[in-house]
Design a protein around this nucleic acid. Sequence first.
DNA 1: GACATATCGATATTTTTTTATCTATTTAAA
DNA 2: TTTAAATAGATAAAAAAATATCGATATGTC
Lengths: 221, 221
Amino acid sequence: MSKQNTHSLVVTKSTLSRLPLYYSFVSRLQTEGVSHVSSALIAQHLNLNPVLVRKDLAGVSSVEGKPRTGFEVTQLVKDISNYLGYNKLDEAILVGVGSLGRILLTNTEFENFGLKIVVGFDKDTNLWGIQLGDKHILPMEKMESLVQRLGIRIGIITVPDDQAQAVCDQMVKCGIKAIWNFAFVPLKVPENILVKNENLPSSLAVLSHQLAKSMASQSKQ
Amino acid sequence: MSKQNTHSLVVTKSTLSRLPLYYSFVSRLQTEGVSHVSSALIAQHLNLNPVLVRKDLAGVSSVEGKPRTGFEVTQLVKDISNYLGYNKLDEAILVGVGSLGRILLTNTEFENFGLKIVVGFDKDTNLWGIQLGDKHILPMEKMESLVQRLGIRIGIITVPDDQAQAVCDQMVKCGIKAIWNFAFVPLKVPENILVKNENLPSSLAVLSHQLAKSMASQSKQ
DNA sequence: GACATATCGATATTTTTTTATCTATTTAAA
DNA sequence: TTTAAATAGATAAAAAAATATCGATATGTC
């Protein structure tokens, strides 16, 4: 609680994206009854540099790790969970109840990571009123009133690419502040709106190109 | 063709993950009949720095951009597509025909990005023999012979987290060289095997934490 | 045909992120 | 009680990535 203030450590995006991995590993240790964990052990498990892990944890942990014993597991789980807001749920809406939308909507896994999708929207009239799990599907027109009534700030876009920008615009108009975009198009948004793109073609490009490279270098030897 | 050799420009991971975005934008221009495009225009559209775009393109484009006119669209599409291997399909297998697995298996979109998933595997006997789209579902035991017969090098893991490592091990044993992992667990693999993790909790952590930060800073003012 | 301008490529600079090194400290074991 | 091994933390160095700057040049305009 106090430490990161005094040191005012910067937690970068890359650190943020590693924290869930630490959390996952450390909370597994907790269920196994392990009491302490060293940065070296975490690093080894996640294929990272121990110094990097130490630095990341220094930014979020309320207590210092102890030489010879490492970090106390229970406390560490609490601290990361706290830092990432896993204890209090953020509410979100989802637009586009196609195959991917359905998965996200019905998968309650995200609630372990601080996100609760409360409702889905779709323009398909056939879907209106039905329930997936305990989530209702509503017509797009209901978005504004619902978002404002519940004070929802996160929107998830799972519509086809060519409709993503329009949905995005509507979300912004309704008061959504952060958008998780699963369509493969860049979204134009006002300055103060956050966008996180989920981008499978980019991932694929990295993987397949590295593969091609590694095969080439092997055949050369 | 000749330029990137003479200059031997390094195309980094971050460049690679931007290339599909360029490709998508530029090929849209092509269908619209636009003949030339400047790095500034691309940058503006994707919210990037023009210099960055120029540098990225320098690494993959066979011809230099011309002052005042920019890059020739047709050629650029060809070059990026070429560089990313979009013209020749890489074959892949997928293991875990649950809801996510189904999407990936039936979505032929990836074939535009150089990846053809040829078959799905699952341990659920009820799925064996059925077809999704034109893709068959086979029992896990058939993996080795099929992978070796077709010389497949890419495996996609869409099983539940607790089964991912076992599936991974089997893939490696069958001769898979690159793994696209949709489970939220780090995979242990031999040195020469590539892994690309698709990691929703990490994305979410970045988004929701930035949101919390931006809300805090706004309420302060 | 000369000139202004948009655009490029190359080099240099800055920023960000990761890794290495060194010292101090805690704890387990002799 | 002393000693040694293991670890954190801080600082420094390196690597990677992004951005800024500048001269060169092709193209449209006067």
